[in-house]
Design a protein around this nucleic acid. Structure first.
Lengths: 316, 316
DNA sequence: TGATAATCATAAGCATAGATTATGCTATAA
DNA sequence: TTATAGCATAATCTATGCTTATGATTATCA
């Protein structure tokens, strides 16, 4: 080893301490040497060097029995503590490797959270010791959260622009046209866009690429789109529609339970095939934590086992 | 360094950890290198080796900003603790060293030196490596010597005025009335003050609170006090008296040997019970060196084991 | 946009800490 | 006394970790 004497103020590395402790425990240099799989002079030298660094003898050299000096006894305590602590550290790191510990921070918005729920369930089942923090962010903010290392994973419905970010399509969703149960269209098997001109649409007042698409589709067909009400949360929109005050286009994943319970009725709209693809997004090149890698794995098995809406298609 | 790969199970020595911590703290390999007075490749290599040993990356190499992985964060905690503990150990050892190699400066005057001798003997026996410097100072100067950090301990016969100074009564002495062996009073069992009016007293020409007390006692009893001779040292006074030229009042501790040898005769004086209490004085609040603390300890054991004139009574 | 600067990684070479073997010294046992 | 055991010392060798030199990649700025 080559260390500039000038600037290495401290020494006392753990290897020295281990040697010293063994000698102290065995009460003999040669026995310690055997335990340490080294020769006796090697042990003698190392202890000697430790003594030089400390500036104080550690063993009473006058007697042969490896008796500790006061300094030796003091150091014995600390050395033991230090080695124990290294053990702890290695253990903790190992646990981390084994996935018994760790944190996973994910950013998602209101809709995409719902995709996460079942995946998260499975993940938690497999790795109950890992803390998961899902942070709700606007879709527009999620890229930033990723780039500034605030979260490790994000869920987006569009492909991120930043080339540093990598995405994997994990879920196929679509916008569902929903009406209240008593609505005149409620019993229809299928409707066409021009039948919707008279409807009162409830909109989400958060910018989204799908909103643009919807507006465009209606404009193309020259069907007027009435959006007299804007609400800030999906929950509010669903309640509003359910109570008979209008209709809405909502991500299918968000209305599954209401539709199956009959609180809302979903009707296919012929020309409105608005597919949404949910992506798990993360920093390319970034060394993902074990937790994050495991999460991706779970998402992948969902695609393989459940199939259907669940996918696993890396982009680029 | 040459360590058999086979048997060195653990690694992670403190030098590596120090390097790692500095990089983590500085958020940069090159800046850490500057701080550690090494080159950047040296730091890179060492961190790399640590990562290899742990089997896990510690920094997120995708970004330049030295961002820690979760393993890195875990290790950071432990590394800090380990280094702190090494610091503690070194401190403890250093304190111990001071004890073996330290110095102890004591100030005492001519009389009180004599108290120190037996205590010092024992102290030297217990701590042979500690250099002891006893400095002779006038009683009036000792407080100053203490306050100006020139000495750590002082011996005084009175309680110091300065509230910063703390004192412990360690010895009870008294003024002894001594006469030459051939003196008419030499065979008396006891004398009274008025018998001393005719005597020729040899005085010490150094101011002292006891001198005042003596003068006062004589004045009260309306007994004249003849002090035709003033001498500067105790040694001179004793010689002067021993050769039959007068009598004197001298601290008992100073005439023990002469009295036991018969060079001087000590006679109790009924009304002259002039007790002197010797104190060990030191700066309150000051963190005493181990040497000084050890010295106090020795004084205490003297009081406990020998008793008699030896005391150990902290004042205030 | 290309040039410049800054940062980290890699490579080659060298110095030293720490390993080894061989040997000397000293105390205890036979 | 010799023999043995245990630690220290000496001489030698090597892998670790330092250096300098250089390359790759990214951020910065005209």
């Amino acid at each position: 080893m080559y260390r500039s004497k000038l600037h290495q103020v401290y020494a006392m590395d753990l290897f020295q301490l281990e040697t010293f402790l063994t000698v102290a425990r065995e009460g003999s240099f040669s026995r310690a040497a055997k335990k340490l799989f080294r020769t006796q002079p090697a042990v003698s030298q190392m202890v000697r060097k430790l003594e030089d660094e400390i500036g104080e003898p550690l063993f009473d050299r006058s007697s042969r029995d490896g008796i500790l000096t006061d300094a030796g006894r003091v150091l014995q305590d600390y050395a033991q503590k230090l080695l124990n602590m290294r053990g702890e550290a290695l253990l903790a790191l190992d646990e981390l490797k084994q996935m018994h510990k760790g944190k996973l921070a994910v950013a998602a918005n209101e809709f995409t959270c719902l995709y996460l729920l079942p995946v998260l369930d499975e993940f938690r089942r497999l790795y109950p010791m890992i803390k998961v923090a899902v942070q709700r962010s606007l879709a527009s903010r999620i890229s930033d959260e990723l780039l500034s290392h605030n979260v490790e994973l994000g869920v987006l419905t569009f492909r991120p622009e930043d080339p540093v970010l990598k995405s994997i399509v994990v879920y196929r969703d679509e916008l569902a046209f929903v009406v209240p149960p008593r609505h005149p269209l409620a019993s229809a098997q299928r409707v066409r866009i021009r039948q919707l001109g008279a409807e009162c649409f409830v909109a989400h007042n958060v910018p989204s690429p799908y909103r643009q698409k919807v507006l465009e589709t209606f404009r193309k067909r020259k069907v007027p789109l009435n959006m007299p009400v804007e609400l800030p949360t999906i929950e509010a929109i669903k309640k509003f529609v359910a109570s008979g005050n209008g209709v809405a286009l909502i991500p299918a994943i968000c209305v599954e339970t209401e539709v199956s319970r009959g609180d809302l009725v979903r009707i296919p709209v012929s020309e409105l095939a608005l597919e949404r693809k949910l992506r798990l997004v993360y920093r390319k090149n970034a060394s993902l934590s074990h937790a994050a890698r495991a999460f991706l794995k779970v998402a992948e098995t969902f695609a393989n086992q459940k199939g259907g809406r669940y996918l696993f298609q890396p982009e680029r």
